[in-house]
Nucleic acid binder design. Structure first.
Lengths: 218, 218
DNA sequence: ATAATCATTATTGTATACAATAATGTTATT
DNA sequence: AATAACATTATTGTATACAATAATGATTAT
Protein backbone atom coordinates (compact mmCIF):
# COMPACT_ATOMS: atom_id res chain seq x y z
CA UNK A 1 0.00 0.00 0.00
CA UNK A 2 1.60 3.27 -1.14
CA UNK A 3 1.89 6.48 0.81
CA UNK A 4 -0.68 9.19 0.30
CA UNK A 5 -0.70 12.81 1.37
CA UNK A 6 0.73 13.98 4.65
CA UNK A 7 -1.80 15.01 7.31
CA UNK A 8 -1.45 16.72 10.65
CA UNK A 9 -1.98 14.74 13.80
CA UNK A 10 -5.15 16.57 14.76
CA UNK A 11 -6.66 16.02 11.32
CA UNK A 12 -5.95 12.30 11.42
CA UNK A 13 -7.50 12.04 14.86
CA UNK A 14 -10.67 13.79 13.73
CA UNK A 15 -10.81 11.79 10.51
CA UNK A 16 -10.60 8.47 12.36
CA UNK A 17 -13.09 9.64 15.02
CA UNK A 18 -15.62 10.46 12.35
CA UNK A 19 -15.07 7.26 10.42
CA UNK A 20 -15.80 5.34 13.58
CA UNK A 21 -18.76 7.34 14.86
CA UNK A 22 -20.27 7.58 11.38
CA UNK A 23 -19.98 3.82 11.08
CA UNK A 24 -17.66 3.73 8.10
CA UNK A 25 -15.48 1.51 10.23
CA UNK A 26 -17.66 -1.09 11.90
CA UNK A 27 -17.43 -2.09 15.56
CA UNK A 28 -15.06 -5.01 16.05
CA UNK A 29 -12.93 -4.13 13.05
CA UNK A 30 -9.21 -4.22 13.71
CA UNK A 31 -7.17 -1.12 12.93
CA UNK A 32 -3.78 -2.03 11.53
CA UNK A 33 -1.08 0.51 12.33
CA UNK A 34 0.95 -0.05 9.16
CA UNK A 35 -2.08 0.52 6.93
CA UNK A 36 -3.02 3.77 8.68
CA UNK A 37 0.61 4.81 8.61
CA UNK A 38 0.75 4.32 4.85
CA UNK A 39 -2.63 5.90 4.19
CA UNK A 40 -1.98 9.09 6.13
CA UNK A 41 1.71 9.32 5.29
CA UNK A 42 3.02 9.41 8.85
CA UNK A 43 5.11 6.99 10.82
CA UNK A 44 3.75 4.25 13.04
CA UNK A 45 4.65 5.92 16.35
CA UNK A 46 2.50 8.88 15.31
CA UNK A 47 -0.38 6.53 14.52
CA UNK A 48 0.09 4.85 17.88
CA UNK A 49 -0.23 8.20 19.65
CA UNK A 50 -3.47 8.86 17.81
CA UNK A 51 -4.80 5.39 18.62
CA UNK A 52 -3.97 6.01 22.28
CA UNK A 53 -6.04 9.18 22.18
CA UNK A 54 -8.94 7.36 20.55
CA UNK A 55 -8.71 4.76 23.30
CA UNK A 56 -8.80 7.41 26.03
CA UNK A 57 -11.84 8.82 24.23
CA UNK A 58 -13.51 5.41 24.40
CA UNK A 59 -13.86 4.84 20.67
CA UNK A 60 -11.35 1.99 20.34
CA UNK A 61 -9.86 -0.59 22.63
CA UNK A 62 -6.29 -1.82 22.60
CA UNK A 63 -5.78 -5.48 23.51
CA UNK A 64 -2.17 -6.34 24.32
CA UNK A 65 -0.22 -7.99 21.52
CA UNK A 66 -3.39 -8.30 19.47
CA UNK A 67 -4.12 -4.84 18.22
CA UNK A 68 -6.65 -2.03 18.25
CA UNK A 69 -10.30 -2.73 17.60
CA UNK A 70 -13.27 -0.39 17.24
CA UNK A 71 -15.44 -0.56 20.37
CA UNK A 72 -18.69 -2.41 19.95
CA UNK A 73 -21.44 -1.03 22.12
CA UNK A 74 -23.51 -3.54 24.06
CA UNK A 75 -27.17 -2.86 24.95
CA UNK A 76 -26.37 -2.26 28.60
CA UNK A 77 -23.80 0.44 27.85
CA UNK A 78 -26.11 2.05 25.32
CA UNK A 79 -28.92 2.29 27.86
CA UNK A 80 -26.50 3.73 30.39
CA UNK A 81 -25.32 6.33 27.91
CA UNK A 82 -28.89 7.36 27.16
CA UNK A 83 -29.52 7.82 30.87
CA UNK A 84 -26.48 10.06 31.03
CA UNK A 85 -27.59 11.98 27.96
CA UNK A 86 -30.93 12.52 29.71
CA UNK A 87 -29.40 14.58 32.50
CA UNK A 88 -26.53 16.13 30.54
CA UNK A 89 -28.61 17.39 27.64
CA UNK A 90 -31.31 18.30 30.14
CA UNK A 91 -28.78 20.63 31.72
CA UNK A 92 -27.90 22.04 28.31
CA UNK A 93 -31.57 22.81 27.63
CA UNK A 94 -31.86 24.46 31.04
CA UNK A 95 -28.91 26.72 30.36
CA UNK A 96 -30.10 27.46 26.83
CA UNK A 97 -33.37 28.73 28.31
CA UNK A 98 -31.42 30.94 30.68
CA UNK A 99 -29.08 32.39 28.08
CA UNK A 100 -31.40 33.12 25.15
CA UNK A 101 -34.62 34.87 24.24
CA UNK A 102 -37.49 33.82 21.99
CA UNK A 103 -36.19 35.66 18.95
CA UNK A 104 -33.07 33.46 18.91
CA UNK A 105 -35.29 30.48 18.06
CA UNK A 106 -37.69 31.93 15.51
CA UNK A 107 -35.95 30.16 12.62
CA UNK A 108 -36.06 26.77 14.29
CA UNK A 109 -39.66 27.30 15.40
CA UNK A 110 -40.56 27.76 11.77
CA UNK A 111 -38.74 24.61 10.69
CA UNK A 112 -40.46 22.63 13.42
CA UNK A 113 -43.87 23.87 12.23
CA UNK A 114 -45.50 22.84 8.96
CA UNK A 115 -42.22 21.58 7.41
CA UNK A 116 -41.77 19.39 10.47
CA UNK A 117 -45.21 17.85 10.05
CA UNK A 118 -44.43 17.10 6.45
CA UNK A 119 -41.14 15.42 7.35
CA UNK A 120 -42.94 13.18 9.82
CA UNK A 121 -45.88 12.39 7.56
CA UNK A 122 -43.60 11.41 4.68
CA UNK A 123 -41.17 9.62 6.99
CA UNK A 124 -38.23 11.59 5.65
CA UNK A 125 -35.73 10.19 8.13
CA UNK A 126 -32.71 11.97 6.71
CA UNK A 127 -34.42 15.37 6.95
CA UNK A 128 -35.68 14.55 10.43
CA UNK A 129 -32.19 13.67 11.57
CA UNK A 130 -30.69 16.87 10.23
CA UNK A 131 -33.46 18.94 11.84
CA UNK A 132 -33.02 17.48 15.32
CA UNK A 133 -29.26 17.61 14.90
CA UNK A 134 -29.46 21.31 14.18
CA UNK A 135 -31.68 21.76 17.23
CA UNK A 136 -29.31 19.81 19.46
CA UNK A 137 -26.28 21.78 18.26
CA UNK A 138 -28.11 25.05 18.83
CA UNK A 139 -29.01 24.03 22.36
CA UNK A 140 -25.42 23.05 23.10
CA UNK A 141 -23.97 26.30 21.79
CA UNK A 142 -26.65 28.34 23.58
CA UNK A 143 -25.71 26.68 26.86
CA UNK A 144 -22.42 28.61 26.63
CA UNK A 145 -20.39 26.07 28.54
CA UNK A 146 -17.20 24.77 26.97
CA UNK A 147 -16.99 21.89 29.39
CA UNK A 148 -20.57 20.85 28.78
CA UNK A 149 -20.15 21.16 25.04
CA UNK A 150 -17.02 18.99 25.02
CA UNK A 151 -18.70 16.39 27.18
CA UNK A 152 -21.84 16.15 25.09
CA UNK A 153 -19.87 15.87 21.86
CA UNK A 154 -17.64 13.22 23.36
CA UNK A 155 -20.59 11.15 24.54
CA UNK A 156 -22.52 11.66 21.35
CA UNK A 157 -19.60 10.40 19.23
CA UNK A 158 -20.01 7.00 20.83
CA UNK A 159 -23.67 6.58 19.94
CA UNK A 160 -24.00 8.64 16.76
CA UNK A 161 -24.20 5.55 14.64
CA UNK A 162 -27.06 4.20 16.76
CA UNK A 163 -29.10 7.37 16.32
CA UNK A 164 -29.96 6.38 12.76
CA UNK A 165 -31.36 3.08 14.00
CA UNK A 166 -33.37 4.80 16.73
CA UNK A 167 -35.29 7.26 14.60
CA UNK A 168 -36.57 4.55 12.27
CA UNK A 169 -38.23 2.71 15.15
CA UNK A 170 -42.04 2.55 14.78
CA UNK A 171 -43.68 5.75 16.00
CA UNK A 172 -40.38 7.28 17.08
CA UNK A 173 -40.35 10.39 14.91
CA UNK A 174 -44.04 11.02 15.60
CA UNK A 175 -43.33 11.14 19.32
CA UNK A 176 -39.96 12.78 18.79
CA UNK A 177 -41.22 15.87 17.02
CA UNK A 178 -43.86 16.51 19.66
CA UNK A 179 -41.28 16.19 22.41
CA UNK A 180 -38.84 18.48 20.61
CA UNK A 181 -41.56 21.11 20.19
CA UNK A 182 -42.20 20.99 23.92
CA UNK A 183 -38.51 21.59 24.56
CA UNK A 184 -38.46 24.45 22.10
CA UNK A 185 -41.55 26.07 23.62
CA UNK A 186 -40.08 25.89 27.09
CA UNK A 187 -36.80 27.44 25.96
CA UNK A 188 -38.62 30.23 24.08
CA UNK A 189 -40.72 30.93 27.13
CA UNK A 190 -37.49 31.23 29.09
CA UNK A 191 -38.51 28.51 31.51
CA UNK A 192 -35.32 26.65 32.52
CA UNK A 193 -37.04 24.08 34.74
CA UNK A 194 -39.53 23.19 32.05
CA UNK A 195 -36.85 23.11 29.36
CA UNK A 196 -34.76 20.67 31.37
CA UNK A 197 -37.77 18.58 32.23
CA UNK A 198 -38.94 18.37 28.62
CA UNK A 199 -35.50 17.51 27.28
CA UNK A 200 -35.18 14.76 29.85
CA UNK A 201 -38.63 13.54 28.92
CA UNK A 202 -37.57 13.43 25.28
CA UNK A 203 -34.50 11.29 25.88
CA UNK A 204 -36.32 9.13 28.41
CA UNK A 205 -38.94 8.43 25.80
CA UNK A 206 -36.25 7.53 23.26
CA UNK A 207 -34.65 5.21 25.79
CA UNK A 208 -37.96 3.46 26.41
CA UNK A 209 -38.41 2.82 22.70
CA UNK A 210 -34.82 1.66 22.52
CA UNK A 211 -35.48 -0.91 25.23
CA UNK A 212 -38.78 -1.97 23.75
CA UNK A 213 -37.37 -2.55 20.28
CA UNK A 214 -33.87 -3.57 21.27
CA UNK A 215 -34.11 -6.74 19.18
CA UNK A 216 -34.31 -4.57 16.08
CA UNK A 217 -31.55 -2.19 17.12
CA UNK A 218 -28.90 -4.78 17.96
CA UNK B 1 19.20 11.33 35.57
CA UNK B 2 19.52 7.56 35.81
CA UNK B 3 17.00 4.93 34.88
CA UNK B 4 14.75 3.46 37.53
CA UNK B 5 12.49 0.43 37.46
CA UNK B 6 10.45 -0.54 34.44
CA UNK B 7 6.72 0.10 34.67
CA UNK B 8 3.81 -0.93 32.48
CA UNK B 9 2.09 1.64 30.35
CA UNK B 10 -1.14 1.48 32.33
CA UNK B 11 0.70 1.95 35.61
CA UNK B 12 2.57 4.99 34.34
CA UNK B 13 -0.67 6.53 33.08
CA UNK B 14 -2.37 6.05 36.43
CA UNK B 15 0.68 7.30 38.33
CA UNK B 16 0.83 10.51 36.31
CA UNK B 17 -2.94 11.00 36.50
CA UNK B 18 -2.81 10.80 40.27
CA UNK B 19 0.20 13.06 40.56
CA UNK B 20 -1.69 15.68 38.59
CA UNK B 21 -5.11 15.36 40.22
CA UNK B 22 -3.58 15.11 43.69
CA UNK B 23 -1.66 18.28 42.98
CA UNK B 24 1.83 16.86 43.32
CA UNK B 25 2.48 18.33 39.91
CA UNK B 26 1.12 21.86 39.85
CA UNK B 27 -0.95 23.33 37.02
CA UNK B 28 1.23 25.06 34.45
CA UNK B 29 4.23 22.84 35.12
CA UNK B 30 5.91 21.49 32.00
CA UNK B 31 6.33 17.73 31.67
CA UNK B 32 9.64 16.88 30.02
CA UNK B 33 9.56 13.68 28.04
CA UNK B 34 13.17 12.73 28.63
CA UNK B 35 12.82 13.06 32.40
CA UNK B 36 9.70 10.88 32.51
CA UNK B 37 11.38 8.43 30.16
CA UNK B 38 14.34 8.09 32.50
CA UNK B 39 12.25 7.96 35.66
CA UNK B 40 9.92 5.21 34.49
CA UNK B 41 12.49 3.33 32.45
CA UNK B 42 10.65 3.37 29.15
CA UNK B 43 11.45 5.04 25.86
CA UNK B 44 10.23 8.47 24.81
CA UNK B 45 7.69 7.23 22.26
CA UNK B 46 5.98 5.28 25.05
CA UNK B 47 5.89 8.42 27.20
CA UNK B 48 4.47 10.35 24.28
CA UNK B 49 1.62 7.85 23.92
CA UNK B 50 0.84 8.24 27.60
CA UNK B 51 0.93 12.03 27.37
CA UNK B 52 -1.46 11.84 24.42
CA UNK B 53 -3.87 9.84 26.55
CA UNK B 54 -3.59 12.35 29.38
CA UNK B 55 -4.36 15.09 26.88
CA UNK B 56 -7.46 13.27 25.61
CA UNK B 57 -8.48 12.93 29.25
CA UNK B 58 -8.14 16.68 29.67
CA UNK B 59 -5.43 16.66 32.33
CA UNK B 60 -2.60 18.10 30.24
CA UNK B 61 -2.31 20.22 27.14
CA UNK B 62 0.24 19.84 24.38
CA UNK B 63 1.39 23.04 22.72
CA UNK B 64 3.21 22.49 19.42
CA UNK B 65 6.99 22.61 19.62
CA UNK B 66 6.78 23.83 23.19
CA UNK B 67 5.83 20.83 25.23
CA UNK B 68 3.23 19.35 27.53
CA UNK B 69 1.90 21.37 30.44
CA UNK B 70 -0.49 20.43 33.24
CA UNK B 71 -3.88 22.06 32.66
CA UNK B 72 -4.70 24.95 34.92
CA UNK B 73 -8.39 25.27 35.68
CA UNK B 74 -9.92 28.73 35.41
CA UNK B 75 -12.92 29.77 37.54
CA UNK B 76 -15.32 29.59 34.60
CA UNK B 77 -14.44 25.99 33.78
CA UNK B 78 -14.60 25.03 37.43
CA UNK B 79 -18.10 26.43 37.77
CA UNK B 80 -19.15 24.62 34.60
CA UNK B 81 -17.76 21.36 35.91
CA UNK B 82 -19.66 21.76 39.17
CA UNK B 83 -22.87 22.30 37.20
CA UNK B 84 -22.17 19.09 35.34
CA UNK B 85 -21.41 17.24 38.54
CA UNK B 86 -24.75 18.46 39.85
CA UNK B 87 -26.73 16.51 37.27
CA UNK B 88 -24.33 13.59 36.82
CA UNK B 89 -23.96 12.78 40.50
CA UNK B 90 -27.64 13.52 40.92
CA UNK B 91 -28.29 10.71 38.47
CA UNK B 92 -25.93 8.44 40.41
CA UNK B 93 -27.85 9.14 43.63
CA UNK B 94 -31.13 8.41 41.84
CA UNK B 95 -29.87 5.06 40.61
CA UNK B 96 -28.35 4.22 43.98
CA UNK B 97 -31.77 4.72 45.56
CA UNK B 98 -33.26 2.39 42.97
CA UNK B 99 -30.68 -0.36 43.33
CA UNK B 100 -30.18 -0.60 47.08
CA UNK B 101 -32.08 -1.03 50.32
CA UNK B 102 -31.67 0.66 53.69
CA UNK B 103 -29.51 -2.08 55.15
CA UNK B 104 -26.81 -1.39 52.54
CA UNK B 105 -26.25 2.00 54.15
CA UNK B 106 -26.37 1.19 57.86
CA UNK B 107 -22.60 1.53 58.24
CA UNK B 108 -22.48 4.93 56.56
CA UNK B 109 -25.53 6.12 58.49
CA UNK B 110 -23.65 5.39 61.68
CA UNK B 111 -20.54 7.27 60.52
CA UNK B 112 -22.67 10.26 59.53
CA UNK B 113 -24.27 10.30 63.00
CA UNK B 114 -22.43 11.27 66.18
CA UNK B 115 -18.93 10.78 64.68
CA UNK B 116 -19.97 13.13 61.87
CA UNK B 117 -21.01 15.83 64.32
CA UNK B 118 -17.68 15.50 66.07
CA UNK B 119 -15.77 15.84 62.81
CA UNK B 120 -17.64 19.03 62.00
CA UNK B 121 -17.39 20.51 65.48
CA UNK B 122 -13.64 19.94 65.63
CA UNK B 123 -13.16 20.99 62.01
CA UNK B 124 -11.33 17.76 61.17
CA UNK B 125 -11.12 18.46 57.45
CA UNK B 126 -9.11 15.37 56.60
CA UNK B 127 -11.62 13.08 58.26
CA UNK B 128 -14.52 14.97 56.65
CA UNK B 129 -12.98 14.54 53.23
CA UNK B 130 -12.48 10.82 53.65
CA UNK B 131 -16.05 10.41 54.92
CA UNK B 132 -17.71 12.19 51.99
CA UNK B 133 -15.31 10.47 49.60
CA UNK B 134 -16.42 7.09 50.93
CA UNK B 135 -20.05 8.16 50.52
CA UNK B 136 -19.50 9.36 46.98
CA UNK B 137 -17.73 6.15 45.99
CA UNK B 138 -20.51 4.08 47.51
CA UNK B 139 -23.13 6.02 45.58
CA UNK B 140 -21.22 5.56 42.35
CA UNK B 141 -20.77 1.82 42.79
CA UNK B 142 -24.41 1.44 43.87
CA UNK B 143 -25.55 3.13 40.68
CA UNK B 144 -24.30 0.03 38.85
CA UNK B 145 -23.47 1.83 35.65
CA UNK B 146 -20.00 1.39 34.18
CA UNK B 147 -20.43 4.34 31.85
CA UNK B 148 -21.61 6.61 34.63
CA UNK B 149 -18.82 5.46 36.92
CA UNK B 150 -16.15 6.12 34.30
CA UNK B 151 -17.59 9.53 33.55
CA UNK B 152 -17.78 10.64 37.16
CA UNK B 153 -14.24 9.50 37.89
CA UNK B 154 -12.96 11.23 34.78
CA UNK B 155 -14.62 14.50 35.70
CA UNK B 156 -13.64 14.23 39.33
CA UNK B 157 -9.96 13.77 38.44
CA UNK B 158 -9.94 17.29 37.03
CA UNK B 159 -11.22 18.98 40.16
CA UNK B 160 -9.98 16.69 42.92
CA UNK B 161 -7.31 19.16 43.93
CA UNK B 162 -9.91 21.90 44.31
CA UNK B 163 -12.05 19.81 46.64
CA UNK B 164 -9.59 20.39 49.49
CA UNK B 165 -9.92 24.13 49.02
CA UNK B 166 -13.72 23.94 48.95
CA UNK B 167 -14.29 22.12 52.22
CA UNK B 168 -12.23 24.61 54.20
CA UNK B 169 -14.48 27.50 53.11
CA UNK B 170 -16.32 29.10 56.05
CA UNK B 171 -19.44 27.15 56.98
CA UNK B 172 -18.97 24.64 54.18
CA UNK B 173 -18.68 21.42 56.20
CA UNK B 174 -21.51 22.51 58.48
CA UNK B 175 -23.83 22.80 55.48
CA UNK B 176 -22.22 19.86 53.73
CA UNK B 177 -22.92 17.30 56.41
CA UNK B 178 -26.56 18.29 56.63
CA UNK B 179 -26.93 18.02 52.86
CA UNK B 180 -25.20 14.65 52.76
CA UNK B 181 -27.49 13.33 55.48
CA UNK B 182 -30.49 14.39 53.38
CA UNK B 183 -29.10 12.47 50.43
CA UNK B 184 -28.47 9.43 52.58
CA UNK B 185 -31.98 9.53 54.05
CA UNK B 186 -33.55 9.74 50.62
CA UNK B 187 -31.52 6.80 49.34
CA UNK B 188 -32.33 4.71 52.41
CA UNK B 189 -36.01 5.51 51.99
CA UNK B 190 -35.69 4.28 48.43
CA UNK B 191 -36.89 7.59 47.01
CA UNK B 192 -35.03 8.15 43.71
CA UNK B 193 -36.56 11.56 42.96
CA UNK B 194 -35.67 12.86 46.39
CA UNK B 195 -32.20 11.33 46.27
CA UNK B 196 -31.45 13.04 42.97
CA UNK B 197 -32.92 16.31 44.16
CA UNK B 198 -30.93 16.30 47.39
CA UNK B 199 -27.67 15.40 45.69
CA UNK B 200 -28.20 18.20 43.21
CA UNK B 201 -28.99 20.53 46.07
CA UNK B 202 -25.75 19.51 47.76
CA UNK B 203 -23.56 20.29 44.77
CA UNK B 204 -25.51 23.43 43.96
CA UNK B 205 -24.84 24.64 47.48
CA UNK B 206 -21.13 23.87 47.10
CA UNK B 207 -21.08 25.78 43.81
CA UNK B 208 -22.71 28.81 45.43
CA UNK B 209 -20.03 28.86 48.13
CA UNK B 210 -17.39 28.41 45.48
CA UNK B 211 -18.65 31.48 43.65
CA UNK B 212 -19.03 33.51 46.80
CA UNK B 213 -15.52 32.79 48.04
CA UNK B 214 -13.80 32.47 44.69
CA UNK B 215 -11.18 35.01 45.70
CA UNK B 216 -9.97 32.56 48.30
CA UNK B 217 -10.10 29.50 46.08
CA UNK B 218 -8.13 30.90 43.15
C1' DA C 1 -7.30 -38.11 5.85
C1' DT C 2 -6.66 -35.76 10.03
C1' DA C 3 -4.32 -33.80 13.60
C1' DA C 4 -0.24 -32.09 15.64
C1' DT C 5 4.11 -29.81 15.17
C1' DC C 6 7.11 -26.74 13.17
C1' DA C 7 8.39 -22.85 10.09
C1' DT C 8 7.00 -18.63 8.08
C1' DT C 9 4.74 -14.38 7.92
C1' DA C 10 2.34 -10.45 9.72
C1' DT C 11 1.66 -7.34 13.36
C1' DT C 12 2.50 -5.22 17.57
C1' DG C 13 5.89 -3.45 21.15
C1' DT C 14 10.04 -0.88 21.95
C1' DA C 15 14.27 1.62 21.49
C1' DT C 16 17.51 4.32 19.13
C1' DA C 17 18.84 7.86 15.98
C1' DC C 18 18.23 11.95 13.50
C1' DA C 19 15.83 16.40 12.12
C1' DA C 20 13.42 20.64 13.39
C1' DT C 21 12.32 24.02 16.51
C1' DA C 22 12.62 26.87 20.56
C1' DA C 23 15.27 28.49 24.52
C1' DT C 24 19.56 29.99 26.22
C1' DG C 25 23.84 32.07 26.46
C1' DT C 26 27.73 34.51 24.25
C1' DT C 27 30.01 37.69 21.57
C1' DA C 28 30.48 41.75 18.97
C1' DT C 29 29.07 46.28 17.81
C1' DT C 30 27.43 50.79 18.80
C1' DA D 1 26.74 49.30 29.16
C1' DA D 2 22.99 47.83 26.27
C1' DT D 3 21.34 45.58 22.41
C1' DA D 4 21.39 42.80 18.43
C1' DA D 5 23.18 38.95 15.94
C1' DC D 6 24.96 34.60 16.31
C1' DA D 7 26.19 30.05 18.24
C1' DT D 8 25.04 26.56 21.46
C1' DT D 9 22.09 23.72 24.00
C1' DA D 10 17.83 21.56 25.21
C1' DT D 11 13.58 19.73 23.86
C1' DT D 12 10.19 18.28 20.82
C1' DG D 13 8.83 15.96 16.34
C1' DT D 14 9.55 12.08 13.35
C1' DA D 15 11.25 8.02 11.11
C1' DT D 16 13.65 3.85 10.92
C1' DA D 17 15.20 -0.44 12.78
C1' DC D 18 14.90 -4.31 15.67
C1' DA D 19 12.65 -7.56 19.12
C1' DA D 20 8.62 -10.09 20.75
C1' DT D 21 4.34 -12.01 20.02
C1' DA D 22 0.44 -13.89 17.58
C1' DA D 23 -1.56 -15.66 13.28
C1' DT D 24 -0.99 -18.39 9.31
C1' DG D 25 0.37 -22.05 6.49
C1' DA D 26 3.04 -26.19 5.44
C1' DT D 27 4.82 -30.58 6.61
C1' DT D 28 4.98 -34.86 8.89
C1' DA D 29 3.33 -38.67 11.66
C1' DT D 30 -0.41 -41.57 12.97
Amino acid sequence: MGKKKKNSRREIFIELSERISDGYISPGVKLIEQELSSEFGVSRPVIREILSQLEAQGLVKKVPNKGTVVCKIDPGSLFEIFEIREVIEGLAARKAAQNTTAKDWKDLEKKFGAPGDKIVQNKQFEEYLSLVTEFRKRIVSSAQSKELSALINSIYAKIRIVQRRVIILPGRIEKGIIEHREVLNAIMKGDPDMAESMKRNNLHSALKDLKRYKKWVF
